[in-house]
């Protein structure tokens, strides 16, 4: 097998050292302030995605075809990314768990509508209750989702 090794100039390494700019701390502070400015807009859009997922639940339960599951997976993956970026960690975990259920079910060739419904119920709960007092209860729900996935699909598969 022929292997070619070449060295290209890393232009970014030169540009980043140019005079001016800002300190690393300033860059992080500015980025966080900028993110805060779009917080409400992004979380509003995320909430619409959660509703979209919940609205599609009945149809997916009735007919869990590959296209519908891929769509659910993609929306849940987006919810995970948006929720986590703005500190809605448990909502993000519930969405991540749904991705995990769909992916591992596809890999294992098994499907469980009750497991899917449990995830929908968890998302509904996270959406309605993000209070400090409900945090422990939500932790229990998330742990339950992990057990449900293991029960349906078996242990996590190893990467190929």
């Amino acid at each position: 097998m022929t292997v070619t090794r070449r060295r290209f100039e890393n232009r970014l390494s030169k540009l980043i050292k140019l005079p001016g700019g800002k300190t690393v701390q300033e860059a992080m502070d500015d980025a966080e302030a900028n993110m805060e400015s779009i917080r409400d807009k992004v979380l509003g859009a995320m909430d619409k995605k959660v509703l979209q997922l919940l609205d599609s639940a009945a149809a997916v339960t009735a007919d869990p075809n590959p296209e519908a599951l891929t769509n659910c997976y993609n929306v849940a993956n987006e919810i995970f990314a948006l929720a986590g970026a703005f500190g809605k960690v448990q909502m993000g975990e519930a969405a991540y768990s749904l991705c995990e259920l769909i992916d591992r079910s596809r890999e294992a060739g098994k499907w469980s509508s009750p497991a899917f419904q449990a995830h929908m119920n968890a998302l509904r709960l996270m959406r309605h209750d993000d209070t400090e007092e409900g945090q422990e209860a939500r932790k229990v729900v998330l742990a339950g989702l992990r057990s449900v996935i293991d029960a349906v699909t078996g242990p996590p598969p190893k990467p190929r």
Partner: peptide
């Protein structure tokens, strides 16, 4: 945190299919 960086002249391509992302 006190070291300086300058990305003003860097040409950066961002790719994300989600408008919020």
């Amino acid at each position: 945190p006190k070291s300086k960086i300058n990305l003003e002249r860097a040409t950066v391509l961002l790719m994300d299919s989600s408008p919020q992302g």
